[in-house]
């Protein structure tokens, strides 16, 4: 079990996905408190994930701009 976890952690993609999910869980309640409209917990979580996807895309595009040779 431990080795499975470690191997999971060592891969870049799943690790960053996990981090994104965890931070989404952390941010979600704050966002829910901030938005005036009544959204259920799942919707807020989805919204936060969408925001983080957008942010990741933006970072990805910056990487492309600075190191276009890699793509």
């Amino acid at each position: 079990m431990e080795t499975v976890l470690r191997r999971f952690w060592q891969k870049r993609v799943p690790r960053s996905l996990l981090l994104v999910l965890l931070s989404a869980v952390t941010i979600a309640p704050t966002v829910q408190a901030a938005t005036g409209i009544s959204l259920d917990r799942g919707q807020v979580f989805a919204l936060v994930l969408l925001g983080m996807t957008t942010l990741s895309l933006s970072i990805y595009l910056f990487v492309v701009i600075v190191q276009p040779e890699r793509f």
């Binding site: 957008t54 895309l57 933006s58 595009l61 910056f62 492309v64 701009i65 276009p68 040779e69 793509f71």
Partner: peptide, 25 residues
């Protein structure tokens, strides 16, 4: 492998994409 000119164009396209991503977000 991408040619120099293709790379420069890729940068510009990425920038335009980035600009519109910000606009839409």
């Amino acid at each position: 492998s991408k040619t120099p000119n293709e790379i420069a164009l890729t940068v510009l396209l990425a920038v335009l994409t980035q600009v519109f991503l910000i606009v839409i977000a």
